[in-house]
Amino acid sequence: MDHRRHAVGSGSPLEPEIGFSRAVRVGNQVAVAGTAPIAEDGSVAAPGDVYAQTVRCLEIAERALAEAGAALGDVVRTRIMLTDVTRWREAAKAHGERFSGIRPVTTFVEVSRFIDPGWLVEVEVDAVLPAPAPGAEWPVARG
């Protein structure tokens, strides 16, 4: 089994400061870090809108998966963290739009707050790629 480590960055200035990667792939496993609703310009995406923030988190996570050589169909676990769990259905709607046909295991939890008080949700994603055919190489991670 190939245990080479491939780290994927998102360009966040917090990555080197904190010492983390957006995603890490080792062999056939990919883990995507807690992904916040950050707009392209670095601001908070969709202030006050749990659904739209969840969509943004999933867009970022999906891009990180692709850069690691994975896709949404490879996702086996998601974690949805909310500052107000009573709004879980808003996040669930966004999650269901991407995962209703995949149906990974999923956990919704409430947290007291995130780094930015404007973030209402963060998403974590874990994926497992299918093993290559005997004698074949693991797909090369992009990025």
Rank of each mutant, 00 (worst) to 15 (best):
H3C: 11
R4Q: 15
A7S: 10
V8M: 06
V8T: 00
S12C: 15
G19D: 10
F20N: 00
R22L: 05
R22N: 04
V24N: 01
R25N: 07
R25A: 06
N28G: 13
N28I: 03
V30W: 11
A33K: 04
A33W: 05
G34E: 14
A36H: 04
A36W: 00
P37W: 04
P37A: 15
A39D: 14
A39Q: 05
E40I: 09
D41S: 04
D41M: 01
G42C: 04
S43Q: 10
S43F: 02
A45T: 01
A45N: 05
A45H: 12
A46C: 10
A46R: 00
A52H: 04
Q53G: 03
Q53P: 00
Q53S: 09
T54Q: 09
C57F: 01
C57A: 09
I60G: 04
E62C: 07
R63D: 06
A66C: 05
A66D: 06
E67V: 02
G69T: 08
A70D: 01
A70M: 03
A71R: 14
D74R: 02
V75S: 02
R77K: 12
R79D: 07
M81Q: 14
L82Y: 04
V85N: 06
V85K: 12
T86M: 07
R89D: 13
R89C: 01
E90M: 07
E90L: 12
H95Y: 14
G96R: 10
R98S: 09
F99W: 09
G101Q: 08
I102F: 09
T106L: 12
T106N: 08
T106W: 03
T107N: 08
F114R: 08
F114P: 15
D116E: 15
D116M: 06
D116K: 12
P117M: 12
G118H: 06
W119S: 04
L120I: 07
E122C: 08
V123Y: 03
D126Y: 03
A127N: 04
V128W: 01
L129G: 05
L129V: 03
A133V: 01
A136V: 00
W138A: 05
V140K: 10
A141K: 00
